[in-house]
């Protein structure tokens, strides 16, 4: 028996909108730790890892570990039927081939349940080792989204370079080139507006903008984004989900031939 009651149901709606472009089908894993997901895109270039910790739910019952295969577009269709202020409860019985999403309006005058068919998915789980990153950049998520969108109108790839001076996003295409430098800026009114760079050593890596733009669908989940870079590793683009967990995107770099 599984029963997860999330008062801030809009979080789940936003999570689905953040990942459904990247991944079609995925297994949601439920354990005492929380509600989680790890899935790669079909070309094995990008990976999304989601964790919603059990403590973040108003009620969390998971009698035994359960993996539920879901089509994310279908799940998003159902969650779009929940109001932004609704409380969402996810329910499943052991051995069942369906999951139920229950939506309650804040004043309890409307209760809806949507039952969705589960699917068997052969998922490839990857072990992601803890890593020391050469550079970690934290910046406003909307600013990062704007940069990725702007650069993708010029080129297909972005070079992200971190130096003492700041973080530089560069692209080149048929019509020309573009460079956007964001300097460390801690003297802002609100901490979420700051750009903070922790650098052990300079790093420069090239990534496909198509994937970066897809990651920025998670922007509504968090005011800030953290970009962790190491010269020999995939980049991690992390959006923290307030008090509950995170959504992390990993992207393999472009490599010199």
């Amino acid at each position: 028996m599984l029963e997860l009651r999330l008062v801030q149901g809009s979080l789940l709606k936003k999570v689905l909108e953040a990942i459904r472009e990247l991944v079609n089908d995925a297994n949601f894993d439920c354990s005492a730790t929380g509600f989680s997901l790890q899935a790669m895109d079909s070309s094995h270039v990008a990976l999304v890892a989601l964790l919603l910790r059990s403590e973040g739910f108003e009620h969390y019952r998971c009698d035994r570990n359960l993996s539920m295969g879901m089509n994310l577009n279908n799940m998003a269709k159902m969650l779009r039927c929940a109001g932004n202020d609704d409380i969402i409860t996810i329910k499943a019985d052991d051995g069942s081939d369906t999951v139920t999403f229950m939506f309650e309006s804040p004043n309890q005058d409307k209760i809806a349940d949507f039952e969705m068919k589960l699917m068997d998915i052969d998922s490839e789980h990857l072990g992601i080792p803890d890593a020391e990153y050469h550079a970690i950049v934290r910046m406003p998520s909307a600013e990062f989204a704007r940069i990725c969108k702007d650069l993708s109108s010029i080129g297909d790839t972005v070079v992200i370079s971190v130096t003492k001076e700041g973080v530089k996003f560069s692209t080149a295409g048929d019509i020309g080139t573009a460079n956007i430098v964001c300097r460390q800026n801690k003297t802002v009114d609100k901490p979420e507006e700051a750009t903070v760079i922790e650098m052990q050593e300079p790093v420069s890596l090239t990534f496909a903008l198509r994937y970066m733009n897809s990651f920025t669908k998670a922007t509504p989940l968090s005011e800030t984004v953290t970009i962790s870079l190491s010269s020999e590793l995939p980049v991690v683009v992390e959006y923290k989900i307030a008090d509950m967990g995170y959504i992390r995107f990993y992207l393999a770099p472009k490599i010199e031939e």
Partner: peptide, 14 residues
Amino acid sequence: DTKQGNLLAFFKKI
């Protein structure tokens, strides 16, 4: 020239 890296080259399947 660059080519797209693959995550399986960095992380192991478990």
